[in-house]
Design a protein around this nucleic acid. Structure first.
Length: 105
DNA sequence: TCCTTGACGAGAT
DNA sequence: CATCTCGCCAAGG
């Protein structure tokens, strides 16, 4: 029996699994939103989970965190310069107002 | 078990 | 544009 809290089959494990898959599938130059990633992963309204995964496991899993911005096109707080540099390397320009136009608003 | 904290989002004020 | 409220949810205290 799969106990509801089995880390390998819990609902949260499935959400993380799906969200991570979507993140790893992002291509260079492709900018998406937290909510967009959640939707694509089949887990609408889980934008906060997307942010948490990026914040805690980007290094470990080599997630392309710089290709994710919030619904307003704002860059990640505290990482603007680094993110801007990484995006520029992929041909994505940040507007003068400090925003980017996401592919899936 | 309850409460607070977020790389969030949408809507109201 | 700045704040707030409410929804959502894993983590950590």
């Amino acid at each position: 029996m799969r106990s509801s809290d089995d880390p390998k089959h819990s609902r949260s494990a499935a959400r993380e699994r799906d969200i991570i898959a979507v993140l790893l599938a992002l291509n260079p130059g492709e900018v998406v939103t937290y909510g967009g990633v959640a939707d694509t992963a089949g887990h609408p309204r889980q934008s906060r989970l997307v942010g948490r995964i990026l914040a805690e496991r980007s290094d470990e899993l080599d997630l392309p965190w710089w290709r994710v911005v919030n619904a307003s096109g704002r860059l990640v707080p505290g990482h603007e310069r680094e993110q801007r540099r990484l995006l520029a390397a992929e041909g994505v320009m940040v507007a003068a107002n400090g925003r980017v136009r996401p592919r899936n608003p």
